[in-house]
């Protein structure tokens, strides 16, 4: 039996779709078929959007986020509180905080965390202009990094960098998630929650 059931163009489309997160070869095949079936309604606008994304998306020189303009929309927004700077690991974390609408400050995207295992040092992160940004009227830096060993190592490193400045440095609380049942939580999370308990 022949390995290929379609021409090389379709096979190429399937191969490329299979590289996307969450898609394997089978689901990529289904997605490709769906796109081809909805050629005008979906495939054409998608290909146009991809071309625009490729040509216009840039990294913001100020915060390290991605947008179609430099400085990005968040950095240009005058309604945001410029005295609060939220440090996040990735653009996905920035989007998560924006979705939650919990902070109205500016952001600083590190582009990863310090990780000796993966050979990622301070020079590999977007830290070069952090002190400069902090000295520009920032009163509080919120370290919204992941509660992992690498994330917290990065948080402590940034705290050390900012030690000389007058700025207040805070970090996210660790503990019981909303909807979490104590019985199913690991001991580490429980102990962090107990240590950081608040008076009601």
């Amino acid at each position: 039996m022949a390995d290929r059931v379609a021409g090389p163009e379709i096979e190429r489309l399937i191969q490329l779709l299979a590289r996307l997160p969450g898609l394997g070869p089978r689901s990529a095949r289904r997605a490709a078929l769906h796109l081809i079936r909805k050629r005008e309604e979906l495939l054409a606008p998608l290909s146009d959007a991809l071309v625009v994304a490729r040509e216009r998306i840039v990294t913001c020189s100020s915060c390290g986020s991605i947008d179609t303009s430099n400085p990005c929309t968040i950095c240009r927004d005058v309604r945001r509180d410029s005295s609060v700077l939220v440090v996040v690991e990735t653009v996905a974390d920035l989007w998560a905080l924006e979705r939650a609408k919990v902070v109205n400050g500016h952001y600083h995207v590190l582009g990863g965390t310090l990780s000796p295992l993966d050979g990622i040092g301070p020079k590999d992160l977007n830290l070069s202009n952090l002190t400069e940004r902090v000295s520009d009227g920032v009163k509080e830096v919120i370290l919204a990094v992941n509660a992992t060993v690498d994330g917290q190592t990065t948080a402590h490193y940034i705290t050390d960098i900012l030690k000389g400045s007058e700025v207040k440095v805070s970090r996210l609380a660790h503990g019981v998630p909303v909807g979490g049942e104590l019985d199913y939580l690991d001991e580490g999370t429980l102990s962090a929650a107990m240590r950081q308990r608040s008076i009601v």
Binding site: T153, H174, G188, A192
Partner: peptide, 21 residues
């Protein structure tokens, strides 16, 4: 399966974290 959760405690102090690394 977890037998001793230590990471959360060590995350509290930079010296502990550097020691762990």
């Amino acid at each position: 399966e977890m037998s001793r959760s230590r990471a959360a405690l060590l995350m509290e102090s930079p010296t502990s974290l550097h020691g762990l690394q």
